[in-house]
């Protein structure tokens, strides 16, 4: 299935609606900050060079795998809460989808969240790097 504007997984659509009500930058960051607690975490004991996402100012680590039913699963953690909040939203976007769908999942959902406007280039690039990594891993899992 292909996703795009107006056609997102329901869990992501709910987040988009939540963010669309917020215009204040402080509140937006606060929401992201709070989303961190919803992230399906990667224990810090498992952090290593292979799990590390490059391009983030903070430490960010993810592992992508398949659930028993063959759907995609990303877990991750970061030492900065806003980065971990972004991971949590990425999980809502792609976890539970077929890996082939994740491989082509458009990153444009961040625009609908209004996140790219409020994120610094460092953070935005870090997020893009993370999401690119998610898609690459999904492709490998789909082809395996």
């Amino acid at each position: 299935m292909s996703y795009g504007e107006g056609n997102w997984p329901e869990s992501l659509q709910l987040v988009i609606e939540e963010f669309s009500d917020v215009f204040d930058a402080m509140e937006r960051y606060e929401m992201l900050y709070e989303f961190a607690s919803e992230c399906d975490p990667l224990s810090e004991d498992l952090w290593c060079e292979e799990t590390r996402v490059h391009g983030c100012q903070s430490e960010a680590h993810i592992i992508c795998s398949l659930n028993d039913d063959g759907t995609f699963k990303m877990i991750g953690s970061a030492d900065a809460q806003i980065v971990q909040g972004l991971m949590a939203i990425a999980q809502k976007a792609v976890n539970g989808l077929p890996p082939s769908d994740v491989a082509d999942f458009p990153v444009t959902f961040t625009r609908e969240l209004g996140l790219m406007d409020s994120l610094s280039p460092n953070r935005a690039n870090g997020f893009l790097n993370m999401f690119t990594r998610v898609r690459q891993d999904a492709r490998k899992l789909a082809e395996a």
């Binding site: 204040d24 930058a25 402080m26 960051y29 030492d79 900065a80 809460q81 806003i82 409020s118 953070r123």
Partner: peptide, 21 residues
């Protein structure tokens, strides 16, 4: 307890440009 980068974003949201890293 607040990560330097998180703090910088909240400062930026208030209009304050500080360096982080």
């Amino acid at each position: 307890s607040i990560h330097a980068e998180d703090l910088a974003h909240f400062l930026d949201a208030g209009g304050f440009a500080v360096r982080t890293g």
